[in-house]
Design a binder for these strands. Structure first.
Lengths: 231, 231
DNA sequence: TCAAAAGTGTTAGACGTACACCCATGG
DNA sequence: CCATGGGTGTACGTCTAACACTTTTGA
């Protein structure tokens, strides 16, 4: 029986976990990063937190998440999905806040020249400081979802540009999953899935045989997220 | 930046899709059913809707879902999981309502003697009338999730009693998925998964060889729902 | 000519599916 | 004795992981 008895003292917020691939400063190999914003008031003043804000009364949940993403990084998501609604009673000191959290993927190139200010900074997902509220848990869960979904879906290309080599795509999987994959088997699996189509172009410049460039097959749904999202 | 600027005009509700197995009146074979409540005010006065209500300011989201379940059916869920947060701007006429929806499984025996009143009735999940709000979509999505999760998790026993035969368990799968399964292969898969442990008892009474009774293996997590829910 | 990565081939094992077959009970 | 479902055996096709091998480039 919704739409009656509005409950006082419950605030509804929308936050977004934004993932991108960036080279690690030390090794140079790509890893998963995400932008955080510094809190400029209590509670948790000074701590880093997920970008987000209250839900505007005329915007959908997903729109709110995309807006948040644009406001903090100036980026447009290549993939955007609802993660979970967090509503524990004590998750925000002194207030009752329910956060509906989304997670997003943005391309590495766009992420490279995303806005960075005093109060917005990128962090390595596997090496975060203590965050505000329950945001460490939230990021941990989002990472779990990303890794899971990468294995049974076709979302990896969201980290890449328009065209890419199979080594690029494999690099995304290796960076996210944190383990090496067999190039031969990876190639066959990707080709069999039909998620990519070969172009006529080759990528030269490496001191080795040039690699064919591929494009994502837009005919395909990247994920089967059920009837709500069917095309 | 949660915990500030509470937004007026947005109501937060929690609803629950409650699944149980019941025999179809016509064929007698078990199918998926769910209880609905009749709306007794506008909007959508008279239509059937998912049980739910506004979020109490001192209860967790999952607690709210379980309470809803208890209030409408007097039942305790054997499985309870968050489904999705629905927040389209126009999903409730004349008000902005965000619904956080859970889905639950209850045992067939309990469901058989659950409360039924003028305004609470069970319906076959695959043959619903036009429901209030976007609740038809919500049920459709919950059904999709149930069918998916049944295939890669160990939640089927939530529909059954304490002990059951492998034919019972197979019956659950067949009822939910709507297709016949090979008894021999089903047996081997279930036994290999370790999700059940044999008891010493046999079920006699059929005009055929007695079937061994099994019990659910409580050592195992029924589902891997990620780090949020790890034990 | 050599190193390095692109790309192809081949094998052994795991797993899912189909189906033949025997077992134990009530009627 | 027979119909019915419980329970076991087995063979075939597919998928996966491992790894040997050939191809093509830049230095």
């Amino acid at each position: 029986m919704p739409a009656e008895n509005p409950v006082a003292n419950v605030t509804l917020a929308v936050s977004t976990v934004i993932f991108a691939l960036r080279p690690t400063p030390t090794s140079g190999r790509p890893t998963v990063w995400l932008p955080l914003v510094r809190r400029i008031r209590e509670p948790h003043h000074g701590l880093w937190a997920l970008p987000g804000g209250p839900l505007g009364s005329d915007e959908d949940l997903q729109t709110a998440a995309a807006n948040t993403l644009d406001e903090t990084t100036g980026l447009t998501p290549r993939y955007l999905e609802q993660l979970y609604a967090f509503g524990d009673v004590d998750r925000s000191p002194g207030a009752r806040v329910v956060s509906i959290v989304y997670w997003a993927l943005v391309g590495a190139e766009e992420a490279a020249d995303a806005v960075v200010t005093e109060n917005v900074r990128w962090f390595e997902a596997d090496d975060l400081p203590k965050l505000a509220f329950d945001h460490n848990r939230i990021v941990e869960y989002a990472l779990w979802r990303l890794r899971n979904k990468l294995e049974y879906s076709h979302i990896a290309h969201a980290f890449l540009g328009d065209t890419f080599t199979l080594a690029d795509l494999r690099g995304v999987h290796e960076a996210v999953l944190g383990k090496q994959l067999d190039p031969a088997n990876f190639r066959r699996q990707v080709e069999a899935s039909g998620q990519v189509v070969p172009t006529q172009q080759l990528q030269t410049g490496g001191r080795h045989r040039p690699a064919r460039l591929y494009r994502y097959n837009c005919q395909l749904d990247p994920v089967d997220n059920g009837p709500l999202f069917a095309r």
